[in-house]
Every structure is written in structure tokens, then in C-alpha cells.
Design a protein around this nucleic acid. Structure first.
Length: 113
DNA sequence: CTCTTGACGCAAT
DNA sequence: CATTGCGCCAAGA
């Protein structure tokens, strides 16, 4: 097992995020798992902090509970919610309503690939 | 070099 | 269902 530096990890994470289907969302932990590091959920979040300069749908990434933990990283705290609602994802009190339905497991897609 | 903090997750209580 | 505690790794002070 090699030490995965932020740049490499970042790249892998972006790849997963880009695969998120329209109208769905996933969690940091799921992405971390998908890249092969189940316990690196924090790193995924840290990396998302840089996503502002990247062109990826970071707003589709929330915590395992479906809460918009990183809404303040956007231009406006409400931007993330609006973007999600624009994709038919209902958000209530900074939390995705049909989270169980909206949740998208990257491992499923990757397994298929 | 040590300590704190952070878009987190999960098992135990 | 809510709280608590612990793990995990990187970056900044």
C-alpha cells in the first residue's frame, strides 16, 4: 500500500464525483471507499474544499446523513441547495429529504465498470 | 516537532 | 432516535 498524496487522491475523487448521475448524490465515505481508502472520508471533504476551482458537481456530495455539510464552501450557502433542487432533489433544513432514494453508491457503478 | 482543526463515519450506549 | 467517543490523515499555526 503506497502513501497516496493529496494530488493523486484528489484526482481519483474527482473521477468518482464526475460519475454521479443527474438527480443523485453520494457521501464522502462512499467516495473514499470507491477510491480504495474506506477511512479517508475526511480527506475527501478536505479535497472538496479545493473543488471550487474544479469543474465538478461537488454539490452532489454530502455527508452520510444526507446533510449539506459543505454548503458554505459555495458562492452562497444556499447555492448548493438550489443546485440540488434544480435536479429534482428535495432539500429540507440543509438535509436531503429522500436521501435513501437519492443516495447513489459509486461502488455499484464501478463494479459494473 | 506538537497541537488543533476539518465539506467525515461508525460502533457503542 | 440522540449523544459520545474514537479512528483517520493532512495542513496550518
Amino acid at each position: 500500500m503506497v502513501i497516496l498524496d493529496k494530488e493523486s487522491f484528489k484526482k481519483a475523487v474527482y473521477d468518482i464525483v464526475r460519475l454521479i448521475p443527474l438527480g443523485r448524490a453520494t457521501s464522502y465515505g462512499a467516495i473514499a471507499k470507491a477510491v480504495g481508502y474506506p477511512n479517508m472520508s475526511r480527506m475527501v471533504g478536505a479535497i472538496m474544499g479545493d473543488c471550487s476551482e474544479e469543474k465538478i458537481p461537488a454539490y452532489r456530495v454530502v455527508n452520510s446523513q444526507g446533510y449539506l455539510s459543505g454548503r458554505f464552501a459555495f458562492e452562497t450557502p444556499t447555492k448548493m441547495q438550489e443546485l440540488l433542487e434544480a435536479e429534482n432533489i428535495k432539500v429540507k433544513d440543509n438535509k436531503i429529504c429522500n436521501w435513501r432514494k437519492v443516495y447513489w453508491n459509486p461502488l455499484q457503478e464501478i463494479k459494473l465498470e
